[in-house]
Simulated scan of single mutants.
Amino acid sequence: MTRFFKVLLFVFAFFGSAPILYAQQIKDGETLNLNGLDVTFRILNKEVTDVKGVSFDKYKVSATVKNNTGKSYNARLTTYPSVEAIAASKIVELNCINATGAKLTSKKLDVNMNEHRIVVTYLTMNKEGKTVNSTMTITVGYYLDPGQTVQGEANFIVPKGETPQVNVHTLQ
Rank of each mutant, 00 (worst) to 15 (best):
T2E: 13
K6M: 11
L8S: 14
F10L: 15
A13K: 11
F15M: 04
G16Q: 06
Y22V: 05
Y22D: 12
A23V: 02
A23F: 07
A23L: 04
Q25T: 10
Q25V: 00
I26V: 03
D28Y: 00
G29T: 04
E30G: 04
E30M: 02
E30P: 11
T31C: 01
N35Q: 08
L37H: 03
L37N: 08
D38S: 03
V39E: 00
T40Y: 05
E47K: 09
V54C: 00
F56N: 06
K58C: 05
K60I: 10
V61N: 01
T64G: 12
N67R: 08
G70H: 09
Y73G: 09
N74T: 11
V83D: 12
V83I: 15
A85K: 10
I86L: 13
A87H: 14
K90H: 15
V92Q: 01
L94R: 09
N98L: 01
N98Q: 02
A99K: 13
T100F: 03
G101F: 14
L109A: 04
L109W: 10
D110Q: 15
V111M: 09
N112C: 12
M113P: 10
R117A: 09
R117Y: 05
V120A: 06
V120T: 13
T124A: 06
T124F: 04
M125W: 11
V132A: 03
S134I: 02
M136H: 09
I138D: 06
T139Q: 10
T139C: 04
L144M: 09
N155W: 12
N155E: 13
F156V: 07
V158T: 04
K160V: 05
Q165W: 11
H169S: 09
Q172R: 13
